[in-house]
Computed example of a mutant assay.
Amino acid sequence: MKRKETLLIKSAHEIAYETTEMVLQNVYISENAKPGQFLHIEVAGHTLRRPISIATIDKENETVTVLFKQLGEGTKALATYQAGMEINALGPSGNGFPDRDTTDTTVLLIGGGIGIPPLYCLGKKLAKEGVQVVSVLGFQNKASVFYEEAFNELGKTFITTNDGSYGEKGFVTDVVEKVADFDCYYSCGPLPMLQAVTQKLKNEKGYISLEERMGCGVGACFACVIPTDDFGGYKKICSDGPVFDANEVSL
């Protein structure tokens, strides 16, 4: 259950081009967060909170780690926050990735850009459960790459860049076909990437996590709705998601 919490910033630094990693300490959130959930963070001087996915959960040290791109004025302001400062957040928010089917022995993680952090959180959990993890991660260029070594520790990892400056040139969908066998896939990233992934893997079992700007973050304002495959139906990304069955929503 999400609630308003104060979190202590333990560390904050840029780990790739315009990409900030922030370690936050809070007992309640570290104890209750699950892979796929997010924090709805308040930024001083900005009306709307910013939804930031959780990348790691460390119950022993009572911390969670978040990553975000410095895209708009809000996230640029958040990137100036330093260790020792406190922030306010609603969390852990949203519905995360479902518990895996016990018959799934190999999973495929497909991430793009800032959609990669929640997949790392999931991958760590699955690897601890003895699942074989294969990851395909897409970035714009070499300067934007992060967490490559961390994913390599989970299992076989492919890196793609749009311009070919690192890894394989192209998109994640160009590499997915190299993964011969998997029982389930999980994907998070920009909408065009998710559209391409779900189309390419339409006959496979999978789950997607949607990136979306939000208003209230609690399901009251209807600012982040997405149509479902049911005629006339809608889901709220902030409260019903951000994770959905790949065949549940219309992208």
Rank of each mutant, 00 (worst) to 15 (best):
Phe68Cys: 06
Arg50Ala: 02
Val172Met: 08
Lys69His: 11
Lys76Pro: 02
Val197Pro: 04
Lys124Glu: 15
Gln140Ile: 13
Gly206Pro: 03
Pro35Gly: 08
Ala55Leu: 02
Ser187Ile: 03
Gly233Thr: 04
Thr105Pro: 00
Tyr185Leu: 00
Pro98Tyr: 05
Cys188Arg: 05
Thr63Val: 11
Gly217Thr: 02
Val131Asn: 05
Thr63Gly: 07
Pro242Gln: 05
Asn203Ile: 11
Pro227Asn: 11
Leu154Gln: 02
Arg3Glu: 15
Arg49Asp: 15
Ser144Ala: 15
Ser135Thr: 11
Asp99Cys: 06
Ile114Asn: 08
Thr102Met: 09
Asn152Glu: 12
Pro192Ala: 05
Asn152Lys: 12
Glu129Leu: 08
Val134Trp: 02
Lys2Glu: 11
Met193Arg: 06
Ala180Cys: 00
Val133Pro: 04
Tyr207Phe: 15
Leu201Trp: 02
Val179Thr: 12
Phe182Val: 02
Lys124Arg: 15
Ala246Leu: 02
Ala83His: 00
Glu60Lys: 14
Lys202Glu: 13
Arg50Thr: 09
His40Ile: 08
Val131Thr: 14
Gly91Glu: 09
Tyr207Cys: 05
Ala220Lys: 12
Gln140Leu: 12
Glu148His: 11
Thr20Val: 15
His46Tyr: 15
Gly233Ala: 14
Thr161Ala: 13
Asp230Cys: 00
Leu126Asp: 09
Thr161Glu: 13
Thr105Leu: 05
Gln132Phe: 03
Ser93Phe: 08
Pro98Leu: 06
Leu78Met: 15
Asn61His: 15
Asn32His: 15
Thr198Phe: 01
His40Gly: 00
Gly215Lys: 01
Glu18Trp: 10
Val27Trp: 06
Gly164Leu: 14
Leu154Met: 06
Pro242Met: 04
Glu168Trp: 00
Leu194Lys: 00
Gly170Lys: 03
Asp104Ala: 13
Val176Asn: 07
Leu251Gln: 00
Leu126Gln: 05
Pro227Glu: 04
Glu60Leu: 13
Phe171Ala: 07
Asp174Leu: 07
Ser209Asp: 06
Val136Thr: 04
Val64Ser: 07
His46Ala: 00
Lys236Phe: 13
Pro192Met: 04
Gly170Asp: 02
Asp101Tyr: 06
Gly84Ile: 12
Ala33Val: 09
Ile54His: 05
Gln140Glu: 12
Gln132Cys: 07
Phe146Tyr: 15
Ser30Ala: 15
Ile52Leu: 13
Glu62Met: 06
Asp245Ser: 08
Thr20Cys: 11
Glu204Ile: 04
Gly241Ser: 11
Leu108Pro: 03
His40Arg: 10
Gly233Cys: 01
Tyr120Cys: 05
Leu48Asn: 14
Thr161Val: 10
Ala220Tyr: 11
Cys224Asp: 05
Cys121Tyr: 03
Pro35His: 07
